[in-house]
Design a protein around this nucleic acid. Structure first.
Lengths: 111, 111
DNA sequence: ACTATATTTCCATAAATATGGAAATATAGC
DNA sequence: GCTATATTTCCATATTTATGGAAATATAGT
């Protein structure tokens, strides 16, 4: 994970519709949701939704899985964790005192 | 912290120059850096830097403190932690199993 | 092949962001 | 007040991003 990759992920989430979509998928769990369901849930027109899904997908924040006529989108937890790890790793230049309110302790390596 | 606030913070970081600036400040610590030093370090013209500093500042990711002729900018760790907390709080809808690689355990409330 | 449904692409347009030189505005020392 | 330095604002321009209707494409059941 470098600065550019982080920007890509941050940018993907830095838009109301996309953050809503992503959180929707996060809550839906690994099974994901079809584009149609997302469209109905968030009241986003198909073309607009498709645009944002592509953005999220291209950034690697979500994954798509075709199943019959439906395409199920699901959150890419790994990317999210990598982003958190990246931001956290560089937090306070390693001085824990700067981050009194949060202690992130990865249980596994996630490079 | 709501969706809009999160978008504001994410957007502030979702730009190469701004992410670089922010990380620069994070590593510099609470004392911060003057605009001139940042400009020289990252090779960003004054006007461009000023634009990005304003963006970061307006979003609440950094703080400014005038000291004689210099203005020292420093990272706002609280905002960063709040953002991480927000993203983490809603991760996997509370099911830890979705986030095997990261366990964020805030030691204090940070609402 | 035909039909129905799901999703994406096309396209034009609108809106927001980014850039950096030049001028303006602080601030402080003399 | 003058000068030097630090930083910001102004401004025009370039670039990117967002929007959604209509048409195109894909998939599956009959």
């Amino acid at each position: 994970m470098n600065s550019q990759q982080a920007v890509t992920l941050l940018f993907a989430l830095a838009q109301e519709a996309r953050l809503d979509i992503f959180r929707c998928l996060v809550q839906a769990g690994p099974a994901g949701l079809s584009a149609g369901v997302i469209s109905q849930t968030l009241h986003i027109p198909n073309s607009t939704l498709s645009f944002h899904l592509k953005e999220l997908s291209h950034a690697g924040m979500i994954s798509a899985k075709q199943e019959s006529r439906f395409i199920y989108y699901s959150a890419n937890y790994q990317s999210m964790n990598a982003l958190l790890t990246y931001l956290t790793d560089n937090c306070c230049a390693g001085q824990a005192a700067c981050c009194p309110d949060m202690q992130c302790q990865p249980t596994k390596e996630n490079e």
